[in-house]
Design a protein around this nucleic acid. Structure first.
Lengths: 219, 219
DNA sequence: ACATTTAAGATTGTCAACAATTTCTTGTAC
DNA sequence: GTACAAGAAATTGTTGACAATCTTAAATGT
């Protein structure tokens, strides 16, 4: 993720602007529905309006920005229904990744996941939310890496950016670890046991339960 | 899909250019790896270079065009491995759609699908490739529509554009209908029977078999 | 003949000005 | 006081010009 520091003098390129603006939106500095006036952004980020415009166009295709003809751009506000849909798509895609990971995981990678399982159990026992949340993210990321599915990985990543706001509140839900820990352990077991069907189903069930939580907390 | 006719005089807007260029790429008028020189395209399509440039940027995010810094754009050549990955992602996503469709299908929609099943059987019996191929596309499209999953639908549509070249050759494969017809019928049966798990699995198996064909024909 | 350098041409990257559209403000009639 | 209309301000859409970069080809030296 790029920042603004250390770029004195010269103005930002389009690619840089895309990264800066994406970080600002995903990071919450630019809030949903906030208007994105090209001239203002150009002044704020020391860029020409043309480049700001090009960056906004790219972020529109990525789904982070919404544009209306002759009315400009806003940070796209993702509705609860959309967040649920996005999570369900993630469920399907990460299930695919879990399946592939179970097929091609090496012994070294397996013991790495076992180690992660231990860390997660420990964290929940100690009530260490931050450590558990971090291991959680690591698990999902590692399964995707092990699966070696470029297309699925790219799609998951893009969608995650859109729904990150909902994900965030979720982790702080009381009693959530008690539900998700066994699901995470089931995923690790199935992947390490080279059982593609079980791995896919465990991942799908896990993320469908996340979708259920989003549904119910915002009903 | 937009064309060039009936737009005399005025030059094309960015949104129009995106559609025109997308059609040209997906339709095969612009072949993989073909260089896309901004000035040339501007002359060809009666647009300013700036607009061509913006359109190419959007198509790059969509995955249809590839750009290298200071070296311009080309039509992205999708490798066999990528086509397989794309089909597997489609398998996961259309399986999700089949699952949702099975949950929410109405009686009217069910009899529509039954009708389609009959047409497919007839077409295969008569050896009518074109009719079968058309019904095939209709089936996939209708299942997605019935599922009412916007996010999944948009993702599937984008990916299909990238791999359309491989899909095309596939339909002409001899003996293919004999394999795919029972798969299609199984999908229709499960969706109409309101059996989400069976519908998802039937769709997944069907598209995984498509992925296998792509793998083997290009090995 | 081969490798290196240098210049020319082609192409992309950036910018600032202009045109078109929308939104806001003010004035007027009822 | 409200509704409507006209003008001003703000904002986006488009274009052409200029700068930066890469590619090609000729020129030079060994």
């Amino acid at each position: 993720m790029e920042t603004l520091e250390g770029l004195e003098g010269r103005s930002l390129t389009v690619a840089e602007l895309v990264n800066v603006l994406r970080s600002a939106i995903v990071g919450g500095e630019l809030v949903p529905n906030q208007r994105l006036v090209e001239a203002d952004l150009a002044a704020e980020y020391r860029a020409s309006r043309g480049n700001i415009r090009a960056a906004l166009a790219e972020l529109t295709v990525e789904g982070l920005v919404e544009r209306v003809q002759n009315r400009g751009a806003r940070v796209r506000a993702v509705s609860v229904e959309e967040a649920v849909e996005i999570t369900e798509v993630r469920a399907a895609l990460e299930a695919l990744c879990a399946r592939k990971a179970a097929e091609r995981i090496t012994d070294a990678e397996a013991s790495e996941l076992q180690e992660l399982a231990k860390r997660m159990k420990d964290a929940v026992e100690r009530g260490d939310r931050d450590s558990y949340s971090e291991s959680n993210q690591t698990l999902h990321a590692r399964v995707i890496e092990i699966s070696a599915q470029q297309t699925a990985a790219a799609t998951i990543h893009r969608l995650r950016g859109q729904a990150v706001r909902f994900q965030f509140r979720l982790a702080r839900q009381p009693g959530r670890p008690a539900v998700s820990l066994p699901q995470h352990l089931a995923i690790i077991d199935a992947v390490c046991a080279h059982d593609p069907d079980a791995a896919a189903e465990a991942m799908r069930v896990h993320l469908e339960s996340v979708a259920d939580v989003i549904r119910s907390t915002h009903a």
